[in-house]
Simulated scan of single mutants.
Amino acid sequence: MRTHGWSGAAPTDDEEAVDRILAAARRAIDRSGSDFGIAEVARDLGVTRQTVYRYFPSVEALLTATSIAQTGHFLDVLAAHLSEIRDPATAVVEGIAYTLERLPHEKYLGLLLAPGRASAFSAGVTSDTAFEFGRSMLDRYSVDWAAAGIDDLDQLVEHMLRIVQSFVIDPGRPPRSGEELRAYLTTWVAPALTSRRS
């Protein structure tokens, strides 16, 4: 870890350096949205751009890491929303629907999932970033996946992300929401999960 710069208060270790960089990136996003640069973050911290690049190789990597760090709140809210649901099909349907409904209201979730500069979807729905987010969602569900006969959570994550991606890219005409969205997902998504138990 380099100790020069940092506005005279060097971080004690790499973990603190990353935390400070992510905090500066959050401030930059609050000011400029996703159209910020490494130079803006470096100025905020009193370091060179090379120092920031040492921890994050690109602005996209920094934007993605910041978004993932900030989606923890959304994942906690989602977990609370789904806490009483034990049925896998019902949980997946509600998880997808709730995520789609919250997307316009959750800035960092929008940066992570909406198509664009550094979203999970810009690198593909099967990117490591997308999988990390999707797996974090499933890990917070109150479902016993093994007891439900669902042993490949990676494929379930991929399936859910592909569905979310399709709705984000083209929400439909008119877009489905509320009970209509849930009815659609129950008809076309839920059977894939309920058939695992038969």
Rank of each mutant, 00 (worst) to 15 (best):
E101G: 11
V93F: 00
W6D: 01
A25Y: 08
L45I: 06
T194S: 03
F121Q: 06
S34N: 10
A190D: 07
T186V: 10
D30M: 03
R49D: 14
E132D: 13
Q50M: 13
R196I: 10
A10H: 01
A118Q: 07
R117L: 15
F167T: 00
E60P: 14
S127G: 12
S58M: 07
T66N: 12
A118G: 12
S67V: 08
Y108Q: 00
E106K: 00
Y98S: 06
E106A: 06
A24H: 06
V157H: 05
D152G: 06
W188R: 13
P191A: 10
P11K: 01
D44L: 14
T126K: 13
V77W: 08
V41S: 08
G5Q: 03
E84R: 14
P115L: 05
V59R: 11
A118P: 00
V92W: 11
V52M: 02
T12K: 05
T99A: 05
G149I: 07
W188Y: 11
F167K: 11
S166G: 07
R26T: 04
D139T: 07
E94T: 12
R176C: 00
D144R: 13
E60S: 00
D44N: 09
R31E: 15
G134Y: 09
P104F: 05
P175E: 08
A65W: 13
L161S: 01
D35A: 11
V59F: 05
R54Y: 05
K107L: 12
T90E: 14
V52N: 00
A123R: 14
V59G: 00
L22W: 04
P175N: 10
V168R: 05
D13T: 02
A120W: 02
G33E: 08
L112I: 03
G46P: 08
A39T: 11
A39G: 11
V52H: 10
R86H: 07
S127F: 12
A118T: 05
K107M: 13
